[in-house]
Design a protein around this nucleic acid. Structure first.
Lengths: 196, 196, 196, 196
DNA sequence: AATGAATGAGAGTTCATTCAT
DNA sequence: CATGAATGAACTCTCATTCAT
């Protein structure tokens, strides 16, 4: 009954959803715990019953994004298609999932430095694994000769992910291009830059 | 005499320098006015004598970055070299000046949303002009046929600037590559992505 | 079965033991109900099933101490030994039982003011009876002339009990002196101070 | 002018006085910062302008008591009177000054454990020096043979100071005995207990 | 008998800003 | 020009207690 109230979501789900929206809109520091609990329709005590701190909420958002992206990338990387197809699809997919979770991603890249040291280290470690898996695809293609080796693979990865992070700064759902179209274009740019 | 003290810098200069370093290291919200004045070796009264508010300090940092980048871009765009040379040099130069002013740039992209509405509008307008001038170069090349038209010019610009914004997240002065080398690689990637 | 678990103690006993240790170590205000129930291995609901409030736990500790001390004193006072022997034994015994229940005694003297008014009055009344019974021994000796009458009896009692309260501040079980030795010395000091 | 307001006391003095009274009446934990600033007629900001924390206020009270007692004891100990006179006067004086500063002393013995670890260590070190100076007097008399050596000197000191700490529990200014009378009696008890 | 989610009031602390000097 | 005392509102977080289950 009380679970059915407020849209059938549980209290921690509602809190996480409210925090995500507010953190994305206003930034972590500019969002008060009071705003979050009001948006979720609960009291402060309830928040601290489920989350140890405001920091914890942020960490939960990160965990969700990291898990999602890691799974998608694994999926593409493990395919047995030619490496250029695998990289292209991974490069496009990270754009689509970023746009589909634009709030989470905005928070991710804007508020990461607000995490405490040990949580930050953990997030960074996961992030690094993600980057390395992506870089491995680039290096594989460079070794096979299907990609140019003119640019070090890690710079290529940073180049592409730079544009992915930047999506939050300009992409709007009501804009001219759909998520898929943007993804296609950005993946194209990457593939063309890698042509030997 | 007091200007000669503390390295010969004026009080407002010292305040701005201290604020820049602290904002870049800790973020705008995490930096207190008290920290700034202590780092600058003055008192709060002095800060409020020269700057209307903490917000004003942030705005000054922005103004400095915007002015610098605008000037550099104008310089390259106005040259009468072939468009591919002009774009390549502009693309590389924005990387170098970003790295040379990495603190300012970190602040720029991380704390923009802390500005009040009217200042934000002003900054965004200047930023848009900058983007458009850059885009004009891409479009000029596309019209001439020296660049591929497969990707809309504004997406190309966002792709490149994405990687520029991202520099603050990974570039370290003590790293493997010099600013010039990174700039060369990133400009290369852009030019290769634009090959017809 | 659940009584046999956790060392065969009942839930209220476990709660009282946990509360006693924590109150003595950290003080009443610094100890949260959450800590108590965790230390006792039960939940908050269980605590509030057996005790009306956190205050009640404190009161139970007091009741235990008061009952114990009252009984011991009665035992010595009712003996038909000479008054100097009765007083000496009572004075030494209160030291030993205080040391043997040092946690309870620490709480008693440090947290008494946390009780509500009516419970406080009740505790103080019992405490006063205890003092008066002790004082009666001193006065009896003074009337007989075996003790000096230079100092009013109530001051003598406060003098001795002051040192008893103070035990919690310095006595450690691992120290140089056993409880019995300390008791002997303190009782000696009292008796010597009372020599005519 | 603003200094003349509120009785001519400075803001930090008023805060310290208010805190002392409230800590003595209600205990440290039961006294809120809000109560203190209201009693002092200032705002919370003012309190934190002068004191780093609520803890700091407590520490200031301690520093005042410690300084006072140390000075008085030094004064008596350095005299060239016979040791029994020096000890008697010191033992009586600590009672008088304790009664004259009963609020501070209550706080001292009841709330010491609320200090943070490093401040606590500092206070304890000063306290120990005080005890040792007192003990040295007892030992000197024991060596000369004017005091009995039946009880170890440190136990004697704890015995006396126990009764001093205890004063806060029963002494009232309106009571039967003046501070000087109580001091005389307690010093008498000590000296008689030390008779060979 | 026992759970644990949820409350709501209040805790200590921070901070940008003002203003008399 | 510059000081620094003082403000007042907002901040994150804690906690004893209740109640439906």
């Amino acid at each position: 009954m009380s679970a059915a109230a407020e849209g059938g979501w549980s209290v921690p789900q509602r809190l996480l959803a409210a925090a995500t929206r507010l953190f994305a809109d206003q930034g972590y520091d500019r969002t008060s715990v009071q705003e979050i609990v009001e948006a979720a329709g609960v009291t402060k005590g309830a928040l601290y019953h489920y989350f140890g701190s405001k920091d914890d909420l942020l960490h939960e958002v990160y965990a969700r994004v990291l898990r999602l992206q890691q799974e998608r990338l694994d999926c593409f990387a493990r395919s047995d298609a030619p490496v250029e197809k695998r990289l292209r699809e991974a490069a496009a997919d990270v754009v689509v999932t970023t746009i589909e979770n634009l709030d989470d991603t905005k928070i991710f890249f804007r508020s990461m430095h607000h995490l405490g040291p040990e949580k930050l280290a953990q997030v960074r470690a996961e992030r690094r694994r993600y980057h390395e898996r992506f870089r491995a695809l680039v290096e594989e293609g460079q070794r096979c000769g299907v990609f140019s080796s003119a640019t070090p693979a890690d710079l290529v990865v940073d180049y592409h992910f730079g544009s992915v992070h930047h999506l939050g700064a300009w992409y709007h759902a009501e804009g001219r291009l759909s998520a898929g179209e943007v993804a296609g274009h950005l993946a194209d740019l990457l593939m063309r830059a890698l042509r030997p």
